[in-house]
Write a protein that binds this DNA or RNA. Structure first.
Lengths: 146, 146
DNA sequence: TTGCAATATAGGTGTGTGCTTATATCCTGC
DNA sequence: GCAGGATATAAGCACACACCTATATTGCAA
């Protein structure tokens, strides 16, 4: 789960996510769909999918030679959580309600201010959901893992 | 309001947003704050602020020679809305509750599928909140506008 | 096994963009 | 007015990254 917002920053990748909002799809179908909008190569899409995957925005499921991609809600929620934490320092609305209780119990200080890195509740201190981190920890060989 | 997610894709810019979550701040203070994390020039920050502004993520208020920046919730909500639209095709949870009613009244079709560009409710069809759009429509001279 | 379909990786290229220094613009106080 | 502070723009550079073609890997069916 790295480079969350960096991944979202690319229009083609956002388009892929929109396509996946319609349900799970094999990589090939995504290539096809994207080609209705403009010319793009299969490897380009594959690379985008990899970025989305390491960002925790999509999941893969292998079925035979086909690889089905789907939205990964955890990543999407992480992004939403971070945004929510900005507007609403208390994080009251972010996902699980019990987080609110936690905050209250802690005696919510000063309501706004001195809360530089807003804790996006739900995931405690994601330490910035998208911390540059070019360190490709994804060396795990799992090619075509069935 | 352009390049929403592109703007969010930059770590320094996200850091600026986090700083602004603590309340309105003049540009200079942001430069100072960012310098605690690492070396950066004043123009660099100014440029980031511009990007955030044209993305609708921050607002500016001029007071004397100083320019106070603050979070623009509309932009943040737009981003959240888009994300929400992905996970929840009906857009039930996105901001104002009445949006749900609207959807229901319209007779929510087929629940999932064929809804490629999920309407993020709240702002009807932002036509992709961050549509590449390199066309710099921001030629409006408003330098140091009081 | 061979062939083909589906997808991923390798390697190379061009461009966008984030950075810097230098300078312009605008405000305020003297 | 002029000096100095605060911020924005200009111009140029370097590097990241999105893209491509070519190829490797895996699965399946003949």
């Amino acid at each position: 789960m790295n480079g969350l917002f960096e991944a979202l920053g690319e229009p083609t990748r956002r388009q892929i996510l929109e396509l996946l909002a319609g349900g799970e799809q094999p990589a090939g179908a995504l290539v096809e769909a994207l080609r209705t909008r403009g010319p793009i190569s299969q490897p380009a899409v594959s690379q985008h999918l990899r970025v989305l995957r390491t960002a925790g925005l999509v999941t893969v499921r292998a079925e035979g030679a086909r690889r089905y991609y789907a939205l990964d809600e955890s990543g999407l929620r992480a992004a939403q959580g971070w945004l929510a934490g900005l507007v609403d320092p208390l994080g009251a609305f972010a996902q699980p309600l019990d987080a609110l209780a936690t905050e209250i119990a802690r005696g919510h200080r000063s309501r706004r201010g001195a809360m530089l890195a807003p804790t996006p509740v739900g995931q405690h201190r994601p330490a910035d959901p998208a911390p540059d981190a070019d360190t490709d920890t994804d060396t795990e060989r799992e090619r075509f893992g069935a």
